[in-house]
Every structure is written in structure tokens, then in C-alpha cells.
Amino acid sequence: MNAIETSKLTKYYGKSRGIVDLDMAVGEGEIYGFIGPNGAGKSTTIRTLLGLIHLTSGSATVFGKDIVTSGPEIRQEVGYLPSEVFYYDDMRAIDLLRYSASFYDRDVKQTEARARELAERFDLDLKRKIDDLSYGNKKKVGIIQGLAHKPKLIMLDEPTGGLDPLIQQEFFHLLREENAEGATVLFSSHILSEVQKLCDRVAIIKDGSIIRVDEIKTLLETATKRFKLDLVSAPDPSMFTLSGVTDLAISNHSVDFLFHGRLNDMTKLLAGLDLVDLQVIEPDLEEIFLHYYQKEE
């Protein structure tokens, strides 16, 4: 059984497009990345799965339960952290965490103990009022309230904003630990290096639809390579009109481009150049992402 499965999931806000015919399957125990620029439909997908917004058509299940008819049951097993966190300013952090714990059918004391353990790990003073916390510390409260009840599915919607690099690292460690204990993670981000660091598989979303799903490894092993050339003399740009060459940048004696195509054709082109240095680099996820975006256009 998949942790999340959607079938032609569609959400329109009036006439504006949210997501269209979105099909997604997240296996249990996966760390599934969800990447796309702002407005692509990442938040809409997560918010629809959580019942914060209502689907227009299609269907979705979480652990086999329908999101429309079994919302509260599903949310018993879900921990959620949105990109922007807002809590009750009049509460202390510990009160908020106790309030959060009171919604779950878990042992409240055990959940509170776990919350205290996480607070110590993230160096958060639980006695402080929410109103007095910095945004980064509010985000820590968000992480704790999302994970203290040991959810089976962790939904993270661009979660790292406001966290300093050290806390981000600790957060990622925590997610890996939770995943090792069986939790499924849905991680939405437009920061591709984050997804690259953490996820097993990644879905690329564009204009409300998923345009590609692949394992991170496969995406990185794609035939697309970055070529960096140093030449004896300034090259003639017309030499690089070979099909499959994109993102071309020529500066003095250096040439930089992405190539997706037959390597034999490229070696023929390179043979005609007076090379000082040649580097063939695996592109990072960002470059691949842009590649797919451009290809779709």
C-alpha cells in the first residue's frame, strides 16, 4: 500500500489553476521530494491531502483512506510543517505543544516527553511565550509539534525557511532518523540542493501537473552532462550549434554548456578544437530541473 496516492487530483480556486489531473504515488517509508517553482502547485497538493482545502475533482488516499471521508483519521498519522508558521501568541511554547498533543490518540505524557527531548535537541526554551520567540524559534516549535506524536507520514511544505544552516542540518538528521524508523516523508521545496541531500525520489511539478518522477540517482545520472572547456584561442560560437547543446556560455577562451545527446557527436566536435583543458561534470539537480522545465516549454 502506498502512503499517498492521488488520481487525477484537481483543484481550482474559482477560475485559477491550483493543480490539474495530478497523479502521484508515494511509497511507505520513502523520502519523496516534490520540487517546482512558486505557484507550481506544491502547497495546493499538500493542503488538499490535509483537508485544508477541498479538491475540485479526482481523488486521493493516504494509507488507503480517502482524504474526503477520512480526514481526521488520516491526520492522526500525519505530522505537518508549513513554510510559514503561525501559532497562538498568548501561549508559551510548552502550552502550544501540549495543546497540539491533546489532538492525538497517543499517550499525552509520552508525546510531551518526546517534545521536551526535541526541544533540547533544537535548543528551544519551552517556557517562552510564542510572541517572544524569533521566527527561527517559532519554526522549531513547528518542527516539534509536527513530529512529537511520531507520525507515520511527515508532510513538509518548504520547511527550512527561517532555520539557520546548523538547525537545518539537525532537522535533516531528525528526518532521516524518523524515516529509518519507518516514517514516510513528503518534502516539498524549490531549493533543489535540499531535495538532493534528503530525498530518495523526486517529482518535478510544473503548472499544476507532475512532469517527471524519478529517483534522485537516476536524475543525476541522466545523459545530460556539463562540459567545461579551456581553449588555446577564442572559439567561434557557431561551432556549438550541435543539437543537444544548451545553456551555452562563452567567455574569452572558456566555453561552458550542458549537453544531452550522442556523446560520439560531441567527441567529433571536441576533436576539432584546440583544447587546453576539458571537464565533463555531472550536472546538479538544479540544472536538471531547469533542463526539464525548458524541455516542457
Binding site: 481526521p72 505537518y80 489532538f103 490518540d105
Partner: peptide, 10 residues
């Protein structure tokens, strides 16, 4: 805070 409240199992 509606995000917090409505994403809870209730």
C-alpha cells in the same frame, strides 16, 4: 492559526 488547528485530527 487555522493551518495549525485544521491540520489536526479533528
Amino acid at each position: 492559526t487555522a493551518d495549525f488547528l485544521i491540520s489536526k485530527p479533528v
